[in-house]
């Protein structure tokens, strides 16, 4: 049975259609949920897509995090349900306090839109369970506020708990702390990624690498149904 995937649409989201298409290409039963909705309609997974919700006013993600739908997203996350935030979605998850740290203006100020290399550092999340540790992916970035920052204590915790999920390889495009491109929550079910896996999920779009994220998401379902409850790699996500 396909996984039910809610793609949340905020005013200013612009990667919602690509995200929906990428989830469907991986076999998921994906559908949109409007930011004013309060019901995720029995979602197995929630994805907050990229874009510029509320025009990035005040701070990226700062206003979107108070959208009515976010109460349901928070309840889903706290119940152990998988949540993926891509780019602006990552910013919203940080603003909501579902992920540690924050995202600030790129170190060299420029808006960056180009492919980058990232390395998969943690495979015990719902969005990387089909990857192998150390696997390198080419994924596009498209952000102005992509510099992940965390204080020294938080950064040390992320490293100690292996909560850095993806790391830039070779070139750190935005000056992020410890070359971080994506992280997960303590329970490992909430994941944020700055690059856009949905924009590179087939040969026509430059390569298939991003599809791994959505295929992992869909495969996680099967694992659950087999009773293994995401105890991938000897870890349990605390559901």
């Amino acid at each position: 049975m396909s996984k039910r995937v809610a793609v949340v649409v905020f005013p200013g989201s612009n990667c919602d259609a690509d995200t929906l298409a990428a989830a469907r290409a991986a076999g998921s039963d994906a559908y949109y949920v409007w930011h004013r909705d309060t019901d995720l309609r029995q979602a197995d997974v929630v994805i907050l897509p990229g874009g510029f919700s509320y025009g990035d006013y005040l701070r990226s993600g700062a206003i979107a995090r108070f959208s009515p739908v976010m109460r349901a997203v928070e309840a889903h996350a706290l119940g152990g349900g998988p949540v993926l935030g891509i780019c602006n979605g990552f910013q919203i998850l940080c603003e909501a306090g579902l992920l540690s740290g924050g995202l600030m203006r790129n170190a060299r100020l420029k808006f960056l839109s180009r492919p980058v290399r990232v390395r998969v550092e943690a495979t015990d999340t719902p969005f990387t369970c089909l990857s192998t540790t150390g696997e390198e992916l080419v994924l596009p970035i498209a952000h102005g506020d992509g510099r992940y920052v965390a204080d020294a204590h938080t950064a040390a915790e992320l490293e100690a708990d292996a909560r850095v999920v993806w790391r830039y390889v070779g070139d750190n495009p935005n000056g992020s702390t410890n070359d971080i491109a994506g992280i997960c929550s303590v329970a490992r079910n909430v994941v944020g990624i700055m690059p856009h896996p949905e924009r590179r999920n087939e040969a026509l779009l430059g390569g298939p690498d991003g599809a791994r994220v959505f295929q992992s998401m869909e495969a996680g379902h099967a694992t659950q149904h087999a009773g293994a409850l995401r105890a991938v790699g000897g870890r349990h996500d605390g559901m």
């Binding site: 603003e95 965390a150 204080d151």
Partner: peptide, 8 residues
């Protein structure tokens, strides 16, 4: 709550 992000 909103106007400043204590992380940054």
């Amino acid at each position: 709550r909103l106007l400043a992000n204590p992380v940054t």
